[in-house]
């Protein structure tokens, strides 16, 4: 007998800001999203977007300091999957991030700057808010119907 899932399910993970924890975060998102009945192709997109968000937090918000804490929450409600990432590091301006020019990036041998662009492509909505000195909150939303 199939059990109808509840309207909303929320899972939470707290990890230290260490790059080796990217795999832990990916596994958490994969297990939670698949458990909520989201199809694998969509789950793979959410995993990559969250990986990009998490590595940006580790690198830029916490400046590679592994003692920082990242809270990752994932909830599924009303045909939407919402992933929220909260950190207490340095904030940034999402509006100031420009769309990358791949050809000039190549000529400049530039290796970064694709993460936020990828997040925007992979998800339906990316929202960022920062309370200076307190916390930063990134909310990634993906339609799943």
């Amino acid at each position: 007998m199939k059990v109808k899932p509840p309207d909303e399910r929320t899972f939470e993970l707290k990890v230290k800001s260490s790059l080796e924890n990217l795999a832990v975060i990916r596994d958490f998102i994969s297990d939670s999203a698949l458990d909520s009945g989201i199809n694998k192709e969509v789950v793979d997109r959410i995993i990559l977007a969250v990986d990009e968000a998490s590595s940006n937090i580790m690198r830029h918000a916490y400046k590679d300091r592994p003692e920082g804490v990242i809270t990752v929450q994932i909830s599924v409600k009303n045909n939407e999957c919402v992933v929220t990432l909260i950190d207490n590091g340095i904030g940034f301006s999402l509006e100031k991030v420009r769309e990358p020019n791949m050809l000039s990036y190549l000529k400049e041998k530039k290796r970064g700057g694709l993460g936020i662009h990828l997040m925007k492509i992979l998800m339906d909505n990316v929202d960022y808010s920062s309370i200076d000195g307190e916390y930063n909150k990134l909310v990634l939303t993906k339609k799943i119907n």
Partner: peptide
Amino acid sequence: EYISSAGLGVFMAYIES
């Protein structure tokens, strides 16, 4: 099995050289 933008960045950084 998997690549993120950090992996893509490695190719971007070295291909021109």
